[in-house]
Simulated assay, not measured.
Amino acid sequence: MAAKTDNFQSPDYFNVDELLSEEHKLVRESVRSYVKKEISPIIEEYAQQAAFPQQIVKQLGDLGCFGPTIPEQYGGGGLDYISYGLMMQELERGDSGVRSTASVQGSLVMFPIYQYGSEEQRKKYLPKLASGEWLGCFGLTEPDHGSDPGSMLTNIKDNGDGHVILNGAKMWISNAPFAQIAVVWARDEEGIVTGIIVERGMEGFSTPTTHGKWSLRASATGELVFDNVKIPKENILPNVRGLKGPLGCLTKARYGIAWGVIGAAMDCYHTALQYSKERIQFDKPIGAFQLQQKKLAEMITEITKAQLLNWRLGVLMNDGKATPQQVSMAKRNACEIATNICRDARQMLGGMGITGEYPIMRHMMNLESVITYEGTHDIHLLITGMDITGFNAFK
């Protein structure tokens, strides 16, 4: 497949850029340039072949996309949450799988090690993860326990010699086939959820690849299988116990998704807008017809609303005031409008919309995963419902 020129221009109907600092714009521009140069020319081919572009791991590390909010002393960027959001937006504009690689590394691997880990663990793992020398993954979801992680079966038992024995399995794990380490959540002998760092090469630890995906085809997905894996006790994350550990990580990752999927929506909108000006039917551009203008007007309206919601959420995150429930609302809203925009854009392109010559069908398939992972569409709805009524609909 021939490489195509990426002429993406970001929509900003309400001058949201005026709310951003110069640093924010510089961060966004650096990631946008990277995506245009390194991702757009290759991503269709990798997606068609269901292959993971391994070279992006080092590239994303060099660019500072791994752990951008982690302090610089551990190799992170020391940036704020709006910078992080803009990075994810630009990466997902390229491909959801690329953004997933960065989201998992920063929010689900580096964040728990920084937030819940010992100083020794921070120094040992974070610089290698930040640079892209190592790739990490996050083990929470199990074959029989997705939306209900509290029912997990994976467990650790004290071996009495300074080690614990880990048994169980995790499923749908991004980065797993290529990861050097996994932050895994398991029940201890008291039944309390505990975080532990598992390293590749530990006997009994394997990461079989998940095949046959129609979605996130350029992202590496796999299982984590633990068969009596012997792990030093110093690999346990000492500063958190219970489900609040993994859920705290997911709040950070969901925040990144809320920004990220707007990148995919923008890419589909931009593609549909350009196509509507060039495609002639009935002696005029299809963009001159009312129904096509309706689609485009609704797309830019929803993108604008989501940009403002995300910006406000970023301010609250920076101030330490954002609630997990607010993050849930932003994640759910962004995924819904992005999915709808992709679908409408595909219709506007007619048959061309299903080909790899345009990015829309790839974004559509990817978003079917993103609307499901890190809390499904319905689960986030119920999180908001419980927050406003005080009634728990999960039980």
Results as ranks from 00 to 15, higher is better:
121 Q>A: 10
133 E>Q: 14
112 P>R: 09
101 T>Y: 00
123 K>V: 00
111 F>C: 02
147 S>F: 10
115 Q>L: 10
112 P>K: 02
109 V>Q: 12
121 Q>W: 05
101 T>A: 06
97 G>V: 01
117 G>S: 11
147 S>G: 14
125 Y>G: 09
104 V>C: 13
134 W>M: 15
127 P>S: 03
99 R>N: 12
134 W>A: 04
140 L>F: 13
133 E>I: 09
146 G>H: 15
105 Q>M: 09
147 S>I: 15
140 L>P: 04
140 L>N: 09
107 S>H: 12
124 K>P: 01
133 E>T: 15
103 S>Y: 03
131 S>V: 06
136 G>Q: 03
114 Y>D: 12
121 Q>H: 12
92 E>D: 04
102 A>E: 11
96 S>H: 07
130 A>H: 07
124 K>N: 11
98 V>K: 06
128 K>R: 15
108 L>Q: 14
104 V>S: 07
126 L>D: 02
95 D>A: 14
117 G>T: 08
100 S>Y: 01
119 E>K: 10
94 G>Q: 04
118 S>L: 07
104 V>P: 03
118 S>D: 02
126 L>K: 08
147 S>N: 13
134 W>Q: 11
137 C>N: 11
134 W>V: 06
111 F>H: 13
96 S>F: 02
109 V>F: 09
93 R>V: 13
110 M>E: 08
126 L>Q: 04
117 G>N: 09
131 S>L: 09
119 E>Y: 00
98 V>P: 05
132 G>L: 06
